[in-house]
Design a protein around this nucleic acid. Structure first.
Lengths: 270, 270
DNA sequence: ACCTGAACACCGTTCAAGT
DNA sequence: ACCTGAACACCGTTCAAGT
C-alpha cells in the first residue's frame, strides 16, 4: 500500500471490504449539488454499513463529504429522512391486478416481494414497522391490496383487517430475521460479513440449545427444535403466510370460491 | 409565579401535570440502596413519561436521584436494562393449560392478555418486538404456547410457526396502536394527556381523509374507511386473531376436531 | 442559493477518586 | 461496597456567517 514508487502515488483501490470509512465519496461528489435523492442514497449506504442504531445525520453528511447542517436545507429532520427511505422502499412496486380466480397467489407474490424488499437493506423492516403507508404516494399501494381482498369476495370487515394483518406479518417476520442476522454477524465476527452471516453455525447452535433443555420441562420445544430453527427462513415465511391465507379463505361466503385454498396440503405439512 | 410575598416563598405544589421533571424522587429515595429492581422500576416511570426515544440512562438516574455512572454497577448497559424491562413484562403471567377441547379460547386469552400487558406501558410493544423470548426465564412461556398448539393436534411444522405468528401479531398490532396513540397525543396537544388521547377526534379525521379521496382512484379505501378506522381497536384485534385461528384450525387432521372453529360467523362478518 | 463553523443541549460508557 | 465527577466520543438541530 505505501510502497508505491515516489512521484506516482497510486491511491488504494476502493475495495468493498474497506467499508467502515466514507472514503472517496467526499472528493468525487464534492461539486455535485446536494439533493433529497442523493441524501437518501447516502443514508442507505450508511444504513447497510452501520445499521439503524448507528445511522446518524452526521454519518450521512460524512458519506456525502458535506457538513451536517448542509443536510437541513433539503431535509427537515432525521424523521423526515427516514420517511423518505420508507417511501423509496415502494419504488417500482407494481400493484397486483385484482383477479378473484387467483387472489391467493397474488397475495403470496405481494408478500414475498415485500419481504424481499425489506431484506434488501439492513434494518429496513424496523424502519417500515415504524411507519404507516397512509401518505399520498403510498395510498395507491394500500388501495391495490384492499382491491385484491375485496374483489375476491371477502367481507368488508375481514378485507379491512387483512391488509393490516399481512403487512404486519411481513414487517414482523423481517424484523425478526434482521435480529438473527445481526446476532449471527456479531457472533461470527470476522469470518462472516454482516451481509452474509453464517446461518448454519447459528442454527446448529440454536438447535443444540433446545436439544439440551431438560426433557421433562420442555418436551414440545425439544420436539419442535428441528422445524423451529431452519437454515433458510423462506419456507417458514411461506407457512405463516399460508396459515393467514387459509384463515382468510374461510370467510369467503361462497364455498365454491374457496377452491383456491390449497387445503390438500393439510396432511403432508407435519 | 413570581409575585409571592417576600419571606414566604411558597414552592409550587407537585401537580401530576408537571410530568417533565423528576421531582421529589431524588430526596425521598436518596438513601435506599440501588438495585436492579429499583432501576427497572424507574426506567418504566421514565418510559411512560417520555417514551422509548427519550428513555436515557441519564433520565433514569435522575429519576432515582443518582449519578448516571452509579447505574453501571447494577446494570451492564442500556440494552441490558431494556432486556430486564422486557422480561418483567412476563411477570405473573400464568401459562395456559393445554386442553384440546378449547385450544382456540386459550389462544384468544393468551393473545388478549399479551396485548393488554403491552399496552400497559408506553412503547412497550417496540421493546418487545426487539427481543426474543429464548432466555432461561422466558422459555417456559414459549413451551406453554407450543403445548397448546401441539396437543390440539396441529402438525409440528404448523405448531412451530403458530407460536411465532401469534407473537408477531400481538407485538405488531400493539406497535401500531402505540403509533396512533402518540400521534393523537401530540396532535391533541394540551387537551389530551398522552395516556388518554382523544381517539374519537383522530378517528374522525382519518375517516374524513379517506372519504375525501377521489372516488375513481380509491373505491375500496373509501368503502372500507368506516371499518378500517374504528374508535376502539379491541374489535379489530379480535378479527385479526380470528383469521389466524381459522387458518390454524384448517390444519387439524381430524375434521371433527375443527368443531372449535367458529366458522358460523363467516356470514355475519360483513 | 447553497454551504460552513460553531454552538446548544443532549447521548452511552468508562474510570479514577472519594466515603 | 457503593457512589461521584469528570471525561470521551458521540448525538439532532439551529443559526449567523461566508461565498
Amino acid at each position: 500500500m505505501s510502497d508505491a514508487a515516489p512521484g506516482t502515488p497510486t491511491p488504494p483501490p476502493p475495495s468493498p471490504w474497506e467499508r467502515e470509512r466514507p472514503a472517496r465519496a467526499r472528493v468525487a461528489a464534492a461539486r455535485t449539488p446536494l439533493s433529497r435523492g442523493r441524501i437518501v442514497e447516502a443514508a442507505f449506504t450508511v444504513l447497510d454499513r452501520q445499521g439503524l442504531d448507528r445511522l446518524s445525520m452526521r454519518q450521512v453528511a460524512a458519506e456525502l463529504g458535506v457538513t451536517v447542517s448542509a443536510l437541513y436545507a433539503h431535509v427537515s429532520s432525521k424523521d423526515d429522512l427516514l420517511e423518505l427511505m420508507y417511501t423509496r422502499l415502494f419504488d417500482g412496486f407494481e400493484p397486483p391486478a385484482p383477479d378473484p380466480e387467483r387472489w391467493q397467489e397474488e397475495v403470496r407474490e405481494y408478500a414475498r416481494s415485500g419481504r424481499r424488499r425489506l431484506l434488501s437493506h439492513r434494518d429496513m423492516a424496523r424502519i417500515s414497522m415504524a411507519h404507516v403507508p397512509f401518505t399520498a404516494e403510498l395510498l395507491p399501494h394500500v388501495e391495490a391490496l384492499l382491491a385484491v381482498f375485496r374483489t375476491a369476495g371477502l367481507p368488508d370487515r375481514i378485507a379491512a383487517e387483512a391488509g393490516d394483518l399481512i403487512s404486519t406479518y411481513i414487517d414482523g417476520f423481517a424484523v425478526e430475521e434482521g435480529m438473527w442476522r445481526d446476532r449471527a454477524a456479531q457472533q461470527g465476527g470476522e469470518s462472516s460479513s454482516p451481509a452474509r452471516p453464517d446461518w448454519r453455525e447459528m442454527a446448529d447452535e440454536m438447535r443444540n440449545y433446545f436439544a439440551s433443555l431438560p426433557a421433562a420441562d420442555f418436551p414440545h420445544l425439544r420436539a419442535l427444535a428441528a422445524v423451529m430453527v431452519t437454515d433458510s427462513s423462506d419456507e417458514r415465511f411461506d407457512i405463516g403466510l399460508e396459515i393467514i391465507l387459509r384463515g382468510l379463505a374461510s370467510y369467503l361466503p361462497d364455498p365454491a370460491a374457496r377452491a383456491g385454498a390449497d387445503v390438500s396440503r393439510a396432511s403432508d405439512a407435519g
